[in-house]
């Protein structure tokens, strides 16, 4: 009797402290970008505007979650010799699904994100979670872990994009907020708040993403004492 009870408890799907930790850990204590410093390449490339960052974040959340679930569901069947390749096939399939869907229903974003959607395949966060977590855990926990990591990545992406788009172009989601409206928009929008503000072009260029991410890491560490040099 006792034995069955134990198995039952082990198999039960619940949302307790441990599960909550799976979901929230990657948002803060174990953030893929600011703590693990993974996925930097795409974080530099797609954060010139909020809209692109948003699409990219949703795509990564989707790919990360489902790749985790599928890999976890297949984990006992996947031959150990080819596990990496199988993981890659799963990720590549999901990424292609995302790409085809965007091309059909969000063409502008598809054009702007161009190669970076395809490059989710090489995003270390996704591959890392499959290898480190999904291969050893049940689909339910893997889903939470994938979701957490995807969102953790997405939040930082949006923060960087917010800073870069606002100070670089004076816009958010393409809407002019600060600085004088450019000539070609004059018909619809006159100068906005802080008309003297001149968009800082450095913010639009890639190097600024490096500075912004570095500052975010600094702020994150100052705010969360757990992260300060444990070694």
């Amino acid at each position: 009797m006792a034995e069955t009870a134990v198995i039952e408890k082990k198999e039960a799907i619940k949302f307790g402290k441990k599960e909550r930790k799976l979901l929230t850990d990657p948002l803060d204590d174990n953030n893929p970008i600011t703590v693990q410093v993974l996925g930097i390449c795409s974080a530099l490339a797609v954060t010139t505007g909020m809209k692109n960052a948003m699409v990219m974040a949703v795509a990564v959340v989707f790919v990360c979650t489902f790749a985790n679930v599928i890999t976890s569901a297949l984990r006992k069947a996947i031959p150990k010799q080819v596990r990496m390749i199988v993981q890659l096939v799963i990720i590549a399939t999901l990424v292609t699904v995302v790409e085809l869907t965007l091309k059909a229903y969000a063409f502008e974003s598809y054009k702007q994100l161009s190669v970076f959607i395809g490059l989710i395949i090489t995003n270390c966060i996704v591959m890392g979670r499959l290898e480190a977590f999904a291969m050893a855990n049940r689909p339910y926990e893997s889903a939470l872990d994938g979701l957490g990591n995807g969102v953790g990545y997405g939040i930082i992406l949006l923060m960087v994009a917010f800073i870069r788009e606002l100070f670089g172009k004076g816009e958010l989601f393409g809407y002019k907020l600060i600085g004088a409206a450019p000539e070609y928009m004059v018909n619809t929008l006159d100068s906005k708040w802080f008309g003297w503000y001149q968009g800082n072009n450095l913010m639009v260029l890639f190097p600024s993403a490096m500075f912004v991410i570095a500052v975010l890491i600094w702020v994150h560490r100052a705010w969360n004492p757990k992260l300060v040099d444990v070694s």
Binding site: A77, V89, T93, T96, V97, A104
Partner: peptide, 29 residues
């Protein structure tokens, strides 16, 4: 043998899925 079988099944399923999706969305593309 079992590795080959697994890989074969996986790739077939994946390519069928993507082929259907590509074809279904082609006109919109």
């Amino acid at each position: 043998g079992s590795v080959l079988r697994f890989v074969l099944i996986l790739t077939t399923v994946v390519s069928l899925l993507l082929a259907f999706l590509q074809n279904g969305l082609k006109s919109r593309h």
